[in-house]
Amino acid sequence: MTRVLDQQSRYWLLVMPALLLMTVFYVYPLIQVLWISVTEPEPGLGNYAELFTSGFLHKIWWTTTRICTLTTILTVVLGYIVAFAMAHVRERQMTAMMFCILLTFWLSVLIRAFAWVMLLRTNGMINDLLMAIGLTDEPLRLSRNEFGVVVGMVHFMLPLAILPIYANLRGISPSYVSAARGLGASARQAFLGVYLPLSKPGIISATMLVFVFSLGFFITPAILGGGKVVMISEYIRVAFEETLLWGKATMLATSLLFAVLLVLAVVGRFVDLRKVFGAT
């Protein structure tokens, strides 16, 4: 028995360096953020009062929620189509599709945002093309507005939606749909009544992943919004850099963190989060 305990504690020695590093240099700073948000400039919940009183903050939270919701809906619908196709084609075509997805997934988010700036800006390529074929006389405003931000965000989030949905769809046996068809259901009925309900876990995981990552997304909205569309993440940076008010910046950061945790807590009741994040 003592030898077993000894063994166990020796294995804890392997875990300790990473655990300590994470606790001291990651968790402690996060707690410090919480702490500052209720102590600066004076102790109390004064900073948080602004969440309820400031019309400007309401506007930013509203913009954030609206863009995140729109992005999530578009991404999950488009992602479902791709995942559905992947689950219904032969190996070779599936591999080609997967390769496109993984390449997008791996490429730096900065480079992807850059590509979209190049395409969407006023004298960018899409406007050049539209004017060349005579669809429009003046360049359209495609970036520095919510349209550009949503396009860039959907582009970033698509792999995050496709991969969990595909993992789910791959596990659905085609015999269920065949059985439904054999019993006289139309293709539409078989899809809506049998296939779609079976793919619910994948849809929930994808929706949650996309929504959570959208909430705190910084780079793409900052670049494609061009300062005109301000979401909470960017506002934290701007508020902080312009005013250096630690109390306000940490209050906003804390609220964002709690918004994310809230979504996770709600969704966690329906799906195994550890599986979604790849921990098991």
Partner: peptide, 27 residues
């Protein structure tokens, strides 16, 4: 307990980058 540690290690994936940036900057 070990599996709780493994889950704990995933924290940086969940915390929004802007929040961790602000937190680390302060520290």
């Amino acid at each position: 307990r070990a599996s709780a540690v493994r889950t704990f290690m995933l924290l940086p994936i969940i915390v929004p980058t802007i929040v961790q940036a602000l937190a680390l900057y302060r520290f």
